[in-house]
Computed example of a mutant assay.
Amino acid sequence: MPIPSRAALVEHLVRTRIAGDVATPRDNNLSHYRKLANGDRHYWLGLELGDRWTDEQDVLAVMAERCGVSDDPEHRAGQDTIDPELTVAALDRLAARLRKAAAGKERVLFATGHPGGLLDAHRRTADALRAAGCEIVAIPGGLIADEGMVFQVGGVAVLERGATLWHTHSPVPMAAILDGLARDGSPLPDLVVADHGWAGCAAQRGFDTVGYADSNDPALFIGEAEGTLQVTVPLDDHVFDPRFYEPMTDYLLDAAGLPV
C-alpha cells in the first residue's frame, strides 16, 4: 500500500472516524472536562494539575484549540469532532521527535492503555526505531500494578488481568516500570511513546513524552499546552477496526524517515 499523502490521510481519518465526526458524544466529552476541572484524579492521567484548571471552560478552550472539538459552551449534546488537520499536524510533530530519537540512537519506552486500538501502531513504531538503531527499553520482569501484571507485547508495555490485555487510564503501571528500572539500576528511557496514564505519569516525572489521546481525555492536551508533554496526537483511540490506524502509522513512519 502506498504511503498516503497528507490530503489522503485526512480523508482516511474522516472516513474511518479516527477524526472528523467521532463516536465519542459531546456530553461524554463535557462530563470528562468537568470532572478534570473538579479535581477527579482519574481524569488527570498521572499529571499534577494543581489548581490551574478548575474552570471547565478553560479546559474546553484547550480542547477546541488542540483537538478541534466545538468551542461552543452551549453545545451540550449530540455530535462532537476531532479536527483531522490537527491530527496530521500533531503526527508531523511526533515524526520530528521520532527522527531525533533515531538520529541519537535513543532508548525509547513504549506503552499503551488502549491495546485494543493502539497496540499495533505502537509496535510498528517500536520496530521501526529498533531498525534505525534505537534501544527499545525492556521492562523489568514480575511487575505488578492495579491487581494485574505489567509486561511487554512486541516491545510495548501493557497491563494484563485474567489473561486479558486491559484497557486502563491508570498511571500506576508506568510508575511500576519506571520505579523498577531505577531499582534495578537499568538505564532510563530518553523518550516515552504512550497514551493515557502511561504517558501522563512519564511526563510528570520529567521524561520526554509523546502520546495519543481521545477527545474525552483532556489531561494530555493540557499537559502539552503546559509543556509537560512534547506532543499529544488527537484521535479516536479505539475505532471499529484497529487496521484503520495502519495508513496513519505509515504516514508517521515515513515522515520520520523510518522504515515502513
Rank of each mutant, 00 (worst) to 15 (best):
I3T: 15
P4W: 02
P4Q: 04
V10A: 09
L13G: 00
L13F: 03
V14R: 10
R15Y: 11
T16C: 09
I18Q: 02
A19T: 00
A23E: 11
R26M: 05
R26L: 02
D27I: 13
S31F: 13
H32K: 13
R34Y: 09
L36F: 05
D40W: 13
H42Y: 15
Y43E: 12
E48V: 11
L49V: 11
L49S: 08
D51P: 07
R52T: 05
W53A: 06
D58C: 06
V59H: 03
V62L: 08
R66Y: 06
D71Y: 02
D71V: 04
D71L: 08
E74W: 07
H75R: 12
D80G: 10
D80Q: 10
D83Q: 01
D83Y: 00
T87D: 06
V88P: 02
A89N: 08
A90M: 09
R93P: 01
L94Q: 12
A96W: 03
R97S: 10
R97F: 01
L98P: 00
E106N: 04
L109C: 04
F110E: 07
F110S: 04
G113N: 00
D120K: 05
H122E: 12
H122G: 02
H122F: 15
H122D: 12
D127E: 14
R130T: 10
G133S: 13
G133M: 12
C134V: 07
E135Y: 10
A138E: 15
I139K: 11
P140G: 13
L143G: 11
I144T: 15
D146N: 10
G148S: 05
L159W: 02
R161T: 13
T164P: 01
T164E: 15
T164I: 11
W166E: 15
T168N: 09
T168Y: 09
P173F: 02
L178W: 07
G180C: 08
A182F: 06
R183H: 12
S186Y: 07
L191N: 04
H196L: 05
H196A: 12
H196C: 13
G197Y: 01
G200P: 06
C201W: 04
V210G: 00
V210R: 00
Y212F: 15
A213S: 14
S215C: 14
D217H: 14
P218F: 06
P218I: 06
E224L: 05
A225M: 09
A225W: 09
G227E: 09
L235D: 00
L235H: 03
D236N: 13
V239I: 14
V239E: 04
R243E: 14
R243V: 11
F244K: 06
E246K: 02
M248F: 00
D250F: 02
D250S: 09
A255C: 12
A256H: 07
G257F: 06
P259L: 05
